[in-house]
Design a protein around this nucleic acid. Sequence first.
DNA 1: ATTATCTATAGATCTATAGATAATGC
DNA 2: ATTATCTATAGATCTATAGATAATGC
Lengths: 196, 196
Amino acid sequence: MLAAEVEFMEKGFVAAKTTDIARRAGVTHAMLHYYYRTKENLFKQVFQKKIQLLADSFVTILSQEIPFLEKIQQGVSAHLDFLAANPRLPLFVLWEIVGNPDRQETCREVLLPVFKKVIEELQEILDAERRRGASVPESAQELMLNIVSMNVFTILSLPIAMLLTETREEDRDQFLQRRKQQIVRQVLSQLTENHK
Amino acid sequence: MLAAEVEFMEKGFVAAKTTDIARRAGVTHAMLHYYYRTKENLFKQVFQKKIQLLADSFVTILSQEIPFLEKIQQGVSAHLDFLAANPRLPLFVLWEIVGNPDRQETCREVLLPVFKKVIEELQEILDAERRRGASVPESAQELMLNIVSMNVFTILSLPIAMLLTETREEDRDQFLQRRKQQIVRQVLSQLTENHK
DNA sequence: ATTATCTATAGATCTATAGATAATGC
DNA sequence: ATTATCTATAGATCTATAGATAATGC
């Protein structure tokens, strides 16, 4: 099962081979089919698990009971750290969804409730802040999308970004930390903006 | 060749089949091998072309001789429109690069010079603006990364975003236009921020 | 003569299962 | 008895080429 996760995440459904998965797991491939029947079946279990993980990543944006701006800062930071620990997750999910639209259903079932809940909580925080007199112009959904966009893209494009900025492999973490600060700054700039 | 582009872009290198490409092109698959020798060879040509297209997308961020803020606004807008017209491009490139690191070389060769040039021009614009007394706090690279992040992610995540926001297929363009305005606002918020 | 095209097929994988045998749980 | 495991292989693809034949350019 772990072997299947690794193979599917690295190569995708089509390129991953049941023989390789079996070999990695240290069993004969006949056993794999004995337990999971089909490749598709095995994949579905892995996919479900990974979608769940993606849903969890949204939750990390909400954080502890601390002042508003720090809360956002912590949320962005935790979200990016989560993605950095699961760097193949977003690309894998996006790829499999566009490649096989049937999988959107799983996606909807798992992600939608979590997404709605996070947006709701975030909206409450924003509203509370506004009642305090702060100028928080955006909808929670927009704020969330901005954060997720920049964080996820940072991870997705990391190989290309490192190529283009001529960053070496051992400076990866440093590169991510610097980018994290930029993202926090960018997100906060809209939240602290003086309107009118 | 066009058939190959479509098949590779939709399915990726591994899942695309030379027989399907030939069928789509209306020739026997023997002919395909006669002209291109190997699948890998055919793919390389397609990949090169698509990387070139991606490089072009960076250039659209720079735009005509108009006032600074409008210039940025136009750039963001043109970039997103470009991506919306080539929605599979970013995912395809990212997927093939992580799946086969050998392809990073092509990527580097084509993208790096274009990327450097765009950054350079953008930096000049920012510097000129700063000399005029405007407060433009960021490096061109950071600004560029912010714009590209939000625009590309918008396209990458469009299927999921439409799922989560319960947007119907026919409202796709409207959804994109709304998101575009949000992105422009977000980008400008940092550029017009009052520092200190 | 050289280039283009077709049919047929070799050779390599890959998924999935059949059928035989060993291990395990009442 | 039921469940787990192995070997062997059927059946389906897919890439790539061989070999024969038709079309094209000097």
